[in-house]
Simulated assay, not measured.
Amino acid sequence: MPYLLKPLQAGSLLLNNRLVMPPMATAKAEPDGKVSSAVLDYYREKSAGGYFSLIIVEHSFIQQAGKASENQLSVADDSVIDGLKRLAAVIQANGTKAVLQINHAGSAASQEITGSIPVGPSAVKNPRKGGVPHELTRQEIGEIVAAFGAAAYRTKQAGFDGVEIHSAHGYFLNQFLSPLTNRRTDEYGGDLPGRIRIHKEVIAAVRAAVGEDFPVLLRLGASDYAEGGTTADDSQIAAKEFEKAGVNIIDISGGFSGYTIPGNNEQGYFAPLSTAVKEAVAIPVILTGGITDVQAAEQLLAQGKADLLGIGRAVLQDSLWAKKAVESQAQSAL
């Protein structure tokens, strides 16, 4: 059987193949972050036929101060739960598991959008966005950790099959992980164990909110690709700690470089990172990055570079990509 078509169990999450649609911001939500008919239509189309085993719904803000952009989905208060229920149901009706990614933008936010001064681990310029945030106090950190837990609880109430914590692409948790933006001298800064303390607190808050059996994923910006930034070695250590803390799947992407590597267009360009993390953990690892060809996808799995593959921009361009991939692999197995 082709690797692409093999089922996979991660905690209580049973996936019927190895294809994942990764979170990609659509800017289709209502201005207040509620689920719109455009959001429902988009995910209905992308999940049609159930060819993706899993769809991770785009990053949703956990509090107004952490909103990244206009028309971003919200999971920030109980008023959004009904709309999120409809969204989860639309995806699941097509036979696909649905996970919601929860996020705080931190210093990548802007006052024009949130109405408040952006916050971050340190008063250091955000390498991607340029703004200098307010440096968070311990009490303020605790409040954001609690907001992640509350958002995860709403995700479960809305009927999703799991929740993904966002720590990539230069957003809040990535800002704590990266020495480029974390210059703190207290227990939340310094060496790697200090810089991932908040991640462990967020995972604990999420676990406390959703219980032991609800799948928890974490998207890890596994390298900043910048001098003085995070490296694959850091991510191996961090991923081990996240596994111990109760994460069921690690989803690999870039850090402050975002979801691309400048000058690298090969398929699965984050494969060196997913391979390194896979060596360090026993839980499944998702690899995303420029995968457009089903043969390349099959090869990445066959070579053990990852357990699951995120197919992003190829699916934005062609909603039938997963259908064609599954059918071609099924044909080749005959």
Rank of each mutant, 00 (worst) to 15 (best):
G131A: 14
G229A: 14
H59M: 15
M21F: 15
G162T: 11
N248Y: 03
T96I: 10
S223M: 04
L84W: 06
Q317P: 01
G290M: 13
L300H: 04
A222H: 01
D78A: 15
K240Q: 15
Q9V: 15
G120I: 02
V247A: 12
G159C: 14
I141F: 08
A25W: 00
N126G: 05
L19R: 09
I56R: 10
L8F: 12
L320A: 10
D234G: 07
H134M: 00
L177K: 01
N248A: 04
Y259K: 06
L87R: 02
L301Y: 06
R138W: 02
A222Q: 03
D77W: 10
L308S: 09
L40M: 08
V202R: 04
G11D: 09
Y51E: 10
L192R: 05
K46G: 12
R313S: 12
A89I: 04
H199E: 10
S37Y: 02
A330R: 08
G221H: 03
E135T: 00
K305D: 08
I311N: 03
G66P: 06
S257G: 07
L308P: 04
A232S: 03
S37V: 03
I237F: 04
S60R: 10
Q303F: 10
G254I: 00
G190Q: 01
E58M: 13
A68C: 13
L136E: 05
P2H: 12
S107C: 02
G106R: 13
L4W: 02
V210Q: 00
Q295L: 12
A325L: 12
S167L: 11
P22D: 12
Y188A: 02
F242T: 06
L320E: 06
V145A: 10
S332V: 04
R138Q: 07
V247K: 09
M21K: 14
P7D: 14
V294P: 02
S110I: 15
Y188E: 08
E135A: 15
R154T: 15
D307G: 02
G33P: 10
A208R: 08
A38N: 04
I252S: 00
H134F: 08
S37P: 01
V210G: 01
R183K: 09
L273M: 08
T292N: 07
F256V: 02
L19M: 14
